[in-house]
Design a protein around this nucleic acid. Structure first.
Lengths: 343, 343
DNA sequence: AATCATTTCCAAAGCGCTTTGAATAACGCA
DNA sequence: TGCGTTATTCAAAGCGCTTTGGAAATGATT
């Protein structure tokens, strides 16, 4: 069933039928009702491609996911983020277009998205510190919104980020308040912007109380369980182990826990742990009481909001860049306690 | 830059330019070269929508993800599956269209996909036992491929599945060989087809050696860490605890491990654990030696293969339904050992 | 009844591509 | 030179929609 067939059935022109369905005012209410009913009855919906060819709008948002080191962004948070964004797209009539590409294909992918006019805008995932995608997308004049930020980019662009500096500063300061002095950081890859900021927050807190950081306790890597495990085992076996560990992901924290228990220590007693909790749906941080003390911010909510902001921007060109900085909450769980006195 | 502009520059007709670019034989090689170079130079790619309006092919595959209980399918395996599929789509020039919808919107979403001609086919995720989507898609005549199977559907359709019966039978039999008699199963939701089959495999193995199942030891639920934890705690505290536990996901196994350690038992000694390992990128089952003994099958590979099969089917209509049953390997890790003798 | 403003509807153009059917150019051979 | 082939190229139609500019019908006003 296409528009012509439907208008033939109704004895109306395609113009009128189209306007009726798209809510234009210059069509009689009763006609509109008739048209709507007929469309429903015959199962008519406009062909996406014909429509967007005519309107010039793709009604689709792109997500380009780099799959460089195989598990950089096909990430633990990825699914929840796009589930959040997808909800908004669905409500607003947008499609979600996802491309997984290797690092070297990335630029070409964005250029193609523009040339082929497949999308009206894109969400940029996992920004690194001086991210080439931001100037690229500006040059291409493709509307975009960054989930996160890119430190060294100075031009104005739209982003939504968690205040990672504040979050880690807060978490670290809490541990210091509890008497900890040797605090380790198991971070995500520090060429990523978020990880860099977290490190900064961590260092800020240490320096505020005149603790000099120990490079041995600062590690970054893929955010996997084994990374947390092996790092922790190594540190605990050293001469001067940490009494507390911060992790950039709940997945890392799971590995930390395994290591701690395997080494015969008790989490929350001998060793305190705080993780960054993205509220991943299938890895909830406990049900009632949190397992891990954590700084927490929902990545699914971030996905929703990113989608909203981007679409807003697409619909009202010329608005200033949207920039939102979210605070992460510190929530207390069972994984932290006061530092034991040195014997 | 569009086709007309490009052909104007070249002094050729749109027809010739189009044919040159699309590799038709009736264009001189030298002309083709000229055209290609000009296209490259001026950054021309055909507009996706115009092209697919003309060809009648969307060059896109749909994935409709139900988000019913909020974390049913925005699942732990989801990201890896679509990353695998996405790789194939990219290579073959297809786009990936994802819709997250609530349960009650599902049927309408599929109907709209057809009416609006947005996709050439769909992958069906997370089939339940008597899945309504299969007859629906058959009625709509939209090509589809099911990741998994639907037990009670008898008509022929395309699917790719892991042999879940065999996998759990094998895992259970292994535990029995090790002397275990009280073996628990922490399964996924058993209205899902895969979970049902796993249960069947588990029961088969028990019955083969005349063990009667104990409903107390058979649990199903959301595949989360807390589910594994709370189920295990409860069972271990009972009068007659299991000596081995099977889980349908590595995520559940993480909770099981936490519970076991919290109860002061040792995994692989007092309690053996085997999980189903989907080879999730950010939750690898150890690096060298596997942490958990597991039945293993890569969900990312499954994504790839599903994409290939579906596109094949789209390109050659009238072929018989593709059906592939993959065997899961049993790999030995540190989480299993012989049953301790009863004292 | 005549005039004008509104309301309601429509024909046709255009979005950018592919593809059909036909025209032209190039070539070999009598 | 002239004719039939074959190799190249092209004009135009069509994919299904939106939208411009205008026509017809209706209603209000004199």
């Amino acid at each position: 069933m296409n528009l012509r067939e439907l208008s033939d059935i109704l004895g109306l022109s395609q113009t009128t039928v189209s306007r009726a369905l798209n809510g234009f005012p210059e069509v009689k209410e009763e006609t509109r009702r008739r048209v709507r009913e007929a469309a429903e009855k015959h199962g008519y919906s406009p062909d996406t491609r014909a429509r967007s060819l005519a309107t010039g709008r793709a009604m689709a948002i792109g997500h380009v996911i780099p799959v460089s080191s195989q598990h950089q962004m096909a990430n633990v948070v990825f699914a929840d983020f796009i589930a959040g964004a997808g909800e908004v797209y669905g409500n607003l009539g947008y499609d979600m277009l996802i491309s997984f590409v290797t690092d070297d294909e990335q630029e070409q992918t964005y250029r193609n998205l523009v040339r082929k006019r497949s999308v009206d805008g894109v969400i940029v995932h996992g920004p690194v510190r001086d991210d080439f995608r931001i100037p690229l997308l500006q040059e291409l004049e493709l509307p975009f919104l960054v989930h996160g930020r890119s430190s060294d980019v100075i031009s104005s662009y739209s982003w939504l980020d968690v205040d990672n500096v504040q979050a880690l500063r807060r978490a670290t300061a809490y541990l210091i308040d509890q008497g900890h002095r040797r605090i380790a950081l198991l971070n995500g890859p520090e060429h990523m912007d978020f990880a860099w900021r977290r490190r900064t927050g961590y260092l800020n807190a240490l320096h505020e109380v005149d603790i000099t950081e120990d490079p041995y306790l600062m590690r970054d890597g893929e955010m996997t369980e084994p990374f947390g495990y092996s790092s922790t085992v190594e540190m605990l076996r050293s001469d001067n182990p940490p009494s507390a560990i911060l992790t950039s992901s709940i997945v890392i924290a799971l590995g930390v826990r395994r290591a701690i228990e395997e080494c015969g220590r008790t989490i929350g007693k001998e060793i305190s742990v705080i993780c960054f909790d993205d509220r991943i749906s299938y890895l909830p941080n406990g049900t009632e009481e949190p397992i891990f003390t954590a700084v927490r911010s929902s990545v699914s909510d971030a996905g929703k909001r990113c989608a909203e902001l981007l679409i807003e921007q697409i619909n009202t060109p010329g608005t200033p860049a949207a920039q939102e900085l979210w605070r992460a909450d510190l929530i207390l769980g069972q994984s932290t306690g006061p530092a034991l006195q040195k014997v």
